[in-house]
Design a protein around this nucleic acid. Structure first.
Length: 602
DNA sequence: CAATTTCGCGCC
DNA sequence: AGGGCGCGAAATTG
């Protein structure tokens, strides 16, 4: 069963119950949030999967944040905006009505800021009456939203491999739920620990715009070594000129270039860059702007990257430097279960290519170590560099030299990456395991290629065209692996989320009920970080996902349930592997750590 | 002066 | 010396 939900401008919800074909089976109802909460709980508590309804809406980021704030959680959804993008571009649905239609409102770039729980104007900015499609075959009452949903169902049903797309759309939508829930719950963050870490590294906190002591001392050493008393080491231009004057033949001020040089200024300069980065990216200013009531609430953007990876907006959540991960501390009586998929992308590649030799190298062990013990290369480092080179398209250097050996040992895997690269060089699209396709190269790219075939083309034209073609080939080469890995990760998270919700509470029912009631009714009740004043949502008292980073998750859990959580995460990885690759014998190994703070994990 | 681009570096 | 990002400060442009 599907239930289509639309927000009106006055904060009420329009609800349509739909059959499996997406056609309404009852009149539209208009519910307040309170009425809707009762509606959801009546449907979700009495029915078990797969009878549980799938909630269909335009934009999870927008509507679900409102629901979460009202204490409403759902099990499954279909995010029309995210699914539209997939179906519009997928090689599996090219002949569908949806893909063939000229660009419409569903194709506009999402400007969703999901900035807090206010119901904003929706895509169509509709009042109840405006959202009607007069030409709909289902009758004048069918909304444009419902019509889009039917278009999506049709596209899937007529697809080359509907099963894969169905899984992809479900996983993408589940990811959107997870993203909204993680943003809502937030990552436990101890500002006092963060401050301590910063003070150890940089010196005591100073006013914004000032340099903390250790940074100032380093700046003075740099000025001394370069003989420039007024040098501002934050200015690449000034620094570049000062280095030139000191006789250092640099082409930039990048750290990796400086590392190769011998000069007394190099050591303090590299140190300065590192600390300066810490201060500006994750210093006290960051802490004040992004940590609220002991939680860091990044805005995750599912589908924010063309490959299907997530992006984030605000706070740089996908780049939390290792230096400050110690500030991510579990609440008293709680633990963090940190899990990351070991060598995820090579394993994905092995399965994509059905390369049993490569899969075997990773069975029950570190995949790179397995490549070494198979005698392909001598060291783990070589195995890693070679594999990364194969997936990213390295042609030169050490990685390039090792490639032939990899190609001999794993011909199927390497052939797959090569064919993806060749397709991209020809301007063709490539497609992930579940059916997400790469974009068509832009008009500039295509013109440059066409121009190179013109009889009047110069050698420079040809060289530029070849170089751009290779660039796009590296992109498509990586796309199939990165994109399929993102799909695996979505399935993994969706499974974790589902199993966490089904986890029975430990101990007596009374204890659990008391805990839940306290958490719900008493602001600040329950385990809390120092400084936590926010009331806790009901589900915040049970294990829940708090962080995701491409191939890594963190679950915040009461200590008593940590072991069960770890088991759920491991089992979910196996399930995700089967969902994507069926019986193909590839292991998706995890490193799992149950810790008090994120800094202790690996 | 504000808006936009570039640089450099953090993460996977 | 290769893929994907986001961000802050400096540098440049309008």
């Amino acid at each position: 069963m599907y239930v289509l939900v639309r927000q009106t401008s006055n904060g009420e919800l329009l609800v349509d119950t739909l059959d499996d074909a997406g056609l309404p089976i009852a009149a539209t109802r208009c519910l307040t949030l309170t009425e809707f909460r009762l509606f959801v709980s009546s449907l979700e508590s009495t029915t078990r999967e797969p009878a549980t309804p799938r909630w269909v809406w335009e934009d999870t980021a927008r509507i679900y944040s409102v629901l979460l704030t009202a204490g409403i959680r759902v099990q499954r959804c279909h995010d029309l905006r995210l699914c539209h993008v997939i179906l519009k571009n997928s090689a599996l649905t090219t002949r569908s009505e949806l893909a063939l239609a000229s660009p419409g409102p569903w194709d506009v770039a999402s400007a969703t800021t999901s900035d807090q729980a206010e119901p904003r104007a929706t895509l169509f900015d509709f009042e109840a009456e405006d959202d009607r499609d007069p030409v709909s075959s289902a009758g004048a009452a069918e909304s444009r939203t419902a019509r889009e949903f039917r278009r999506q169902l049709d596209a899937v049903a007529s697809a080359t491999e509907p099963g894969r797309l169905r899984l992809l759309l479900a996983a993408e939508s589940a990811g959107a739920l997870v993203a909204a829930e993680m943003r809502y719950a937030g990552l436990p963050w101890r500002t006092d620990v963060h401050d301590l870490l910063l003070t150890e590294e940089l010196g005591a906190r100073v006013a914004p715009g000032m340099r903390p002591e250790r940074l100032e001392l380093l700046a003075q050493r740099i000025r001394l070594e370069l003989g420039d008393a007024t040098l501002n080491p934050d200015s690449p231009q000034e620094l570049f000129r000062a280095l030139q004057r000191a006789g250092l033949a640099v082409t930039s001020t990048r750290g990796w270039e400086l590392k190769k040089l011998q000069h007394p200024v190099i050591e303090p300069l590299l140190q300065y860059k590192k600390l300066s980065r810490l201060l500006s990216a994750n210093g006290w200013t960051w802490m004040e702007s992004w940590v609220v009531d002991g939680r860091f609430h990044p805005d995750y953007v599912p589908g924010g990257v063309v490959t299907g990876r997530w992006a984030t907006r605000g706070g740089g959540a996908l780049q939390l430097p290792k230096q400050i991960r110690g500030a991510v501390v579990a609440d008293d009586g709680w633990k963090l279960v940190v899990a990351d998929a070991a060598q995820l992308e090579p394993r994905i590649l092995a399965a994509l290519a059905q390369d049993t030799s490569m899969a075997k190298a990773g069975r029950g062990t570190d995949l790179y170590a397995g490549i070494v013990s198979s005698g392909v290369v001598e060291t783990r480092d070589h195995a890693k560099v070679a594999m990364l080179g194969a997936m990213y398209g390295a042609t030169t250097g050490e990685s390039g030299r090792l490639m032939p050996r990899l190609a001999r040992a794993y011909p199927r895997a390497i052939a797959l990456t090569e064919s993806a690269a060749r397709a991209g060089e020809r301007g063709e699209i490539v497609t992930t395991r579940l059916g997400r396709s790469s974009p068509i190269p832009g008009s500039g790219w295509q013109e440059a290629q066409a121009q190179a075939y013109d009889p009047a083309a110069t050698a420079i034209d040809e060289r530029r065209a070849r170089s751009q073609a290779r660039d796009w080939g590296r992109f498509t080469r990586n796309f199939i692996v990165q994109g399929s890995a993102a799909e695996w990760a979505l399935c993994w998270m969706a499974e974790i989320r589902r199993e966490l919700r089904a986890l029975p509470a430990p101990g007596s029912r009374q204890a659990d009920a008391a805990h839940g009631a306290l958490g719900q009714l008493v602001p600040g009740a329950g385990p809390a970080n120092p400084g936590t004043t926010r009331g806790r949502a009901p589900f915040d008292a049970t294990p829940h996902l708090v962080f995701f980073l491409h191939d890594e998750v963190i679950v915040h859990t009461p200590t008593a349930q940590a072991a069960a959580v770890a088991q759920i995460i491991v089992t979910a990885a196996e399930t995700a592997g089967r969902l994507l690759f069926g019986d193909f014998p590839v292991d998706f190994m995890l490193t799992v750590a149950t810790v008090d703070n994120y800094g202790q994990a690996k």
